[in-house]
Design a protein around this nucleic acid. Structure first.
Lengths: 157, 157
DNA sequence: ATAGATAGTTGTGATCATCAACTATCTATG
DNA sequence: CATAGATAGTTGATGATCACAACTATCTAT
């Protein structure tokens, strides 16, 4: 017991060096923590990454194509195939051939999907509440705005 | 909301729905974009994820153990073995057996590693500059502070 | 009618995280 | 000191994930 172990509470002092000055590094750590927390809350569902956000986007954009969905979630279209397969397998979403252009599928959420999504959103709210509990509403709104501007700038970079 | 096809260069209007209200989702997209941008800038080095931040932490904490490094980067200790192997293979870092406790390695950066790290930091700065170009210095500082408080709260959640 | 573009699918290979088992060393306790 | 348990690091197996390229089917343009 000569040195400071991590006895549940102790944290050794680690210097991040220049790394601490970068936004990307902090984003990564937080995002890591958030996704683990969220995954733990939904361990029974065995969600693959991207499944939840895909379902949410389908819900908000009924009839969206897989191609658009891919772009929005940031995955390759082949990965989206797997995700939509998964969503269909769970009975949470359906593929419907477009009547106007038979190359497309129109993705729609099912009633079961809607229920699942409500539960997932509730869990996500808990996760985020845990993590942003120190922030006031104003600060949280501010943060969302800043993140939004960063994301938007991607189109001009 | 969103229904029309995407013709060529058009940005289709996608509704994020409730997803847009969550910090985690925005973090993920930005982080995704950042890491791809950074990876593209360093394509010649073929960096595995976690290698850069590991090197930076070794540089800022000379003599750190692999175990501590694992915890700080958020990787399993077995993954850290691979990364340190990689760093040694590139001649960027070295393992030195601790003289006081022979179970430990003391990780140190080499001169070559220092040079590589300088270049990597320069590239990371460019990447971040691209993405945060719309933010004022004050806003950037504000963002860093908010992210920091979120990350710290992880210990109390 | 044909060429080229687009949506979706499949297969492949690389990467990666996670887990369990193993070694070697150290610490604690009698 | 002897021994049991903890810790640092390694190895190997497994499964998930993802990007990429090749393929099909449909559509559009000419």
């Amino acid at each position: 017991m000569a040195k400071d172990k991590q006895e549940g509470g102790e944290q050794p002092e680690i210097d991040l060096g220049r790394l601490g000055d970068f936004i990307g590094f902090r984003l990564r750590r937080i995002q890591n923590h958030l996704s683990r927390n969220f995954a733990a809350r939904n361990a029974d569902l065995n969600l693959r990454s991207g499944l939840f956000s895909s379902l949410a986007i389908i819900a908000a954009n009924p009839g969206i194509s897989q191609n658009l969905l891919s772009r929005e979630v940031g995955l390759d279209k082949s990965a989206t195939v797997q995700i939509v397969d998964d969503l269909e397998g769970r009975g949470w979403a359906e593929r419907r051939r477009s009547s106007t252009d038979r190359r497309f599928y129109e993705l729609v959420i099912t009633e079961g999907g809607r229920q699942a999504l409500a539960q997932l959103f509730a869990n996500l709210e808990e996760t985020e509440r845990d993590v942003t509990s120190d922030l006031s509403d104003e600060e949280r709104t501010l943060l969302l705005g800043l993140l939004d501007r960063i994301y938007q700038s991607r189109f001009r970079g």
